[in-house]
């Protein structure tokens, strides 16, 4: 099956339960659909597979209405665990982008795809809480791929996290965002 929309970006997040994999999808989806005026459909893994162990979410962003709600060939894979990487790397398009936490994922091959790494969990720990590693990753994703605008993310992020963690989340996002810009320059 090939996706027929030309203007679609498909994103997959893979990791462990508790890493904020689903929340990441929701934040970007919210930013894209509410503040960037696109359509964004988010789906997540359910059932036993969603517990404790592996966890994934998928996001389809489109200029028009998203008609087919699931990802077919992903443009962007965000991997926060080795399993998440190995399970989903095959569905990446040629020249698709793989964004991963360099301390959690060991690449087996870089053929066919563009890879971008960030020590997201380490950065999160430096900021005081490893639970926001996903938000560091979101900042990184925003600057590397520009699939959503930074402005939209700035609006969507505070709405998506508990009030007392807003400041920390913004810091984490900026950290990832800046790191992304540096990495892009370096490439």
């Amino acid at each position: 099956m090939n996706r027929m929309e030309a203007t679609v970006t498909e994103i997959r997040f893979g990791g462990f339960g508790g890493q904020g994999i689903i929340r990441s999808g929701i934040i970007i989806g919210r930013a894209a659909s509410i503040y960037d005026n696109k359509s964004a459909t988010m789906n997540q893994s359910f059932g036993p597979e969603a517990r404790g162990g592996a966890c994934s979410s998928q996001l389809v962003i489109s200029e028009d209405r998203v008609l087919y709600p699931y990802v077919i060939r992903t443009d962007i894979l965000v991997a926060l665990s080795q399993e998440g990487y190995e399970k989903f790397v095959h569905e990446l398009k040629d020249n698709g982008k793989l964004l991963y936490d360099e301390d959690l994922v060991k690449l087996k091959s870089t053929k066919r795809i563009d890879t971008y790494s960030i020590p997201a969990t380490k950065f999160a720990e430096e900021l005081g809480n490893r639970i926001i590693a996903n938000v560091v990753m979101l900042g990184f994703l925003t600057s590397i791929t520009q699939v959503v605008s930074k402005e939209a993310m700035n609006k969507a992020l505070p709405e998506s996290v508990p009030e007392r963690y807003v400041e920390l989340n913004i810091k984490a996002f900026d950290k990832g965002y800046k790191y992304g810009i540096e990495q892009k320059k370096a490439k």
């Binding site: 999808g25 929701i26 989806g29 919210r30 659909s33 509410i34 359509s39 964004a40 459909t41 988010m42 789906n43 997540q44 359910f46 998203v66 709600p69």
Partner: peptide, 9 residues
Amino acid sequence: ECVGHMTEK
């Protein structure tokens, strides 16, 4: 299930 678990605006 698809509509029920699909998050959108």
